[in-house]
C-alpha cells in the first residue's frame, strides 16, 4: 500500500511537470520528461504484474515456431524453452529481460510523447511497435534455440549474448530509425508540400 501511495504521488508530480512544460511550449523537455516518466511507471508496474503475462505470451509465440519446425518445444506457463541436443535436454528460461517487456515499455513511452505524431498515428505506431518487438524477439529466441539444438549448450554464450543480441539490436535499430527519423522526415516533406 505504501509503495502504491508513493507511486501515485510521483505520478501526480510527473503529470504536473508535464503540464508546466506543455504550457511553456518546451516540446523537447515535454518529450523527455513524458517518455522517461511513462517508461519508469511501466517498468515499475511490469515488475510485479506484467512479467508473467509477457513471458507467457513470448514463450507461447516461440513455441509456435518450435512446433512448426519441430526443433524445440516450450512450456508457456513455466516460461521454459526445451531444446534437445542429441541425448541432452537443454532448458532456457524466458525471464524478465528476455520477454521483451523493457523494449516494449521503452517504445510505447517514446511514441506516446513524441511531439510529431497525432494521437491516432501514435496509437497505430504503438501497436505496430509492440507487434514488431514481439516478432523480433521471437526471431532472436528461435535463433538461440536453433543454435542450442545444433551445437549444444556450449554455443549458448555466442548464440545468445553475442549473435542473438546483435540480431535483435539490428532489427530494433532499423525499426527505431524508420519510425523516428525516416518516417517523420517524409511526414515533414509532405506537410511542407501541402502548405506550398
Amino acid at each position: 500500500m505504501l509503495m502504491k501511495t508513493i507511486i501515485l504521488i510521483v505520478v501526480l508530480l510527473w503529470i504536473y511537470s508535464l503540464s508546466v512544460f506543455k504550457r511553456a511550449k518546451l516540446d523537447a523537455f515535454y518529450f523527455l520528461m513524458g517518455s522517461l516518466g511513462l517508461f519508469i511507471v511501466l517498468v515499475l508496474w511490469s515488475k510485479p504484474y506484467a512479467i508473467w503475462l509477457f513471458s507467457t505470451i513470448m514463450t507461447w509465440g516461440v513455441g509456435l515456431v518450435g512446433d512448426f519446425f519441430g526443433i524445440f518445444s516450450t512450456l508457456p506457463l513455466g516460461h521454459v524453452i526445451q531444446v534437445l541436443y542429441h541425448e541432452r535436454i537443454i532448458l532456457m528460461n524466458v525471464d524478465y529481460e528476455c520477454s521483451g517487456i523493457v523494449e516494449t515499455a521503452a517504445f510505447v513511452s517514446l511514441i506516446s510523447f513524441y511531439p510529431v505524431f497525432k494521437v491516432q498515428q501514435r496509437l497505430w505506431l504503438a501497436l505496430t511497435g509492440v507487434a514488431f518487438i514481439f516478432a523480433a524477439n521471437i526471431v532472436r529466441l528461435t535463433f538461440v534455440a536453433t543454435s542450442l539444438h545444433l551445437f549444444g549448450s556450449d554455443s549458448f554464450f555466442l548464440a545468445h549474448s553475442i549473435l542473438g543480441r546483435l540480431l535483435f539490436y539490428v532489427l530494433m535499430l532499423t525499426f527505431y530509425f524508420t519510425i523516428f527519423t525516416r518516417g517523420q522526415l517524409i511526414q515533414v516533406a509532405s506537410q511542407n508540400r501541402e502548405t506550398t
Binding site: 517518455s35 522517461l36 517508461f39 541432452r88 535436454i89 537443454i90 532448458l91 532456457m92 528460461n93 525471464d95 529481460e97 528476455c98 521483451g100 517487456i101 523493457v102 523494449e103 515499455a105 521503452a106 517504445f107 517514446l110 532472436r140 542450442l148 549448450s153 549458448f156 554464450f157 545468445h160 549474448s161 542473438g164 543480441r165 535483435f168 539490436y169 530494433m172 535499430l173 527505431y176
Partner: peptide, 17 residues
C-alpha cells in the same frame, strides 16, 4: 542443462531514446 543470460534490454531502450 539450464542456460540463461541477460539479453541486454536496457541498452536498446537507451539507444531508442
Amino acid at each position: 542443462t539450464y542456460v540463461g543470460a541477460s539479453s541486454g534490454p536496457w541498452i536498446i531502450a537507451f539507444l531508442g531514446l
